[in-house]
Design a protein around this nucleic acid. Structure first.
Lengths: 225, 225
DNA sequence: TCACAACTCACACCATTATGCGATGGATCG
DNA sequence: CGATCCATCGCATAATGGTGTGAGTTGTGA
């Protein structure tokens, strides 16, 4: 049996490309496609009043929708049809949004940049196995859990594996957080600009990032500075 | 350059099959293989004492090991070599173990039942972007977050006080927080790179900042994103 | 005392960013 | 209807940032 998918997405271009994808992808079927949550919820109401249920197994839900938001729609749908898989598909990957979607009952959270082939395989996975998360989302979640999880083991695992930045590296990172340029950092810490580069290189390597913005984000979120 | 992988796994059969996999998989190289954490840590010590560092970029770490546990080994390794990616590879998927591993500094958590092809693609992903989590692990994490996060969501989504950034500007700012380059932002939000510039210009002006790092710091601290 | 980590600096190259200026089409609102 | 704001895009250029490579100077601890 093909996996029946419904789409809720307001952008006509993206929606239409999704439609095309599911119409032709082997193993999948396009059950419905809506431009707003309102229309989707109405359709569900119509069906249930006739004693029917949608044929969809999975709903792809955009978040930023006109009128009823994707989050709200997720919450409502999950109450009406708990067995329905709802996969949020959006461009956002900030923790607040992710957590909000999860709390609303989303079974998965994929980013729109996810390539079509991977999208399909992730969706296939959801019905058998678990929750699909793209890598970027997963990382955000990890950071979140790391931040607020002392509850599990209070102190038996002493150091939380600090990404041990050296003293100088922390100082440099702090300057970056304050928005200083390389030159300003050099002046402020009284070192050569090339030394600043060296430290920043080390920071990036340890934090696994590739630019100042990302380093700053990690630094603040994980309270490194 | 091939992705150099080290294995720490006590079960000889499984270890040998991993060895075979990485010896032959294109784009990968087998850097080392150990039957216990002890031997791996000793090897690292030996190398560092000789002024060398392991050629491995990624360590596949089993959890239930004789002697030093995988969790403990992860913690130790992360202190010695913070830039090393450590991916836990185990049969367990109970929340406590997962959280423990994450808190110990693991960059990813994969299950042994993960098919070889997917394992490879997940590992490839780790060096570019994010944290690899198999679906089952992801599901556990989701449950965890759902359980203990009413505080998080309200805290993060309450009192937005978004200055006066327009919708589009907020989206762009979020992308910056993720560490995306202008080009990546353009791709993700489907706009021209010059439009990205325009939005960023507006953001800087409104936030009174002059570079991405500072904007990101403000954004996170003032919970604009 | 010897090795090593931390810190320092240099140079070069290419990529990316910051910023100024200009312009168009829609949407909204009084 | 005209004013205003938002979103979109283009171009040019100077400045800054990211990364490879190499190497010298300290302390400190084994």
């Amino acid at each position: 049996m093909d996996l029946n998918v419904a789409i809720i997405e307001d952008d006509p271009r993206y929606r239409s490309s999704l439609e095309t994808l599911f119409k032709h992808a082997p193993g999948f079927a396009l059950g419905a496609s809506f431009g707003s949550a309102r229309r989707a919820l109405d359709e569900v109401d119509r069906l249930t009043e006739s004693g029917l249920r949608p044929a969809w197994k999975i709903v792809l839900m955009d978040l930023q929708l006109p009128g009823i938001s994707g989050i709200e729609a997720t919450r409502i749908l999950k109450v009406q049809l708990p067995e329905l898989f709802i996969v949020v598909l959006t461009v956002f990957e900030n923790p607040a949004t992710i957590v909000e979607a999860i709390m609303a009952g989303a079974d998965g959270y994929l980013l729109k940049k996810t390539p079509a082939a991977e999208l399909l395989s992730q969706l296939r996975m959801i019905i058998s196995d678990g929750a699909p998360l793209t890598a970027a989302v997963a990382r955000t979640l990890l950071a979140l859990v790391r931040q607020r999880s002392p509850s599990t083991s209070t102190e038996l695992s002493g150091a939380p594996a600090r990404l041990d930045l050296t003293g100088r590296e922390q100082e440099v990172l702090q300057c970056l957080v304050q928005g200083h340029s390389y030159k300003q950092v050099a002046d402020h810490l009284e070192m050569s600009i090339d030394t600043v580069r060296t430290h920043i290189r080390a920071i990036y390597k340890k934090l696994h990032v590739h630019n100042a913005a990302e380093a700053v984000a990690r630094a603040i979120r994980e309270k490194l500075v």
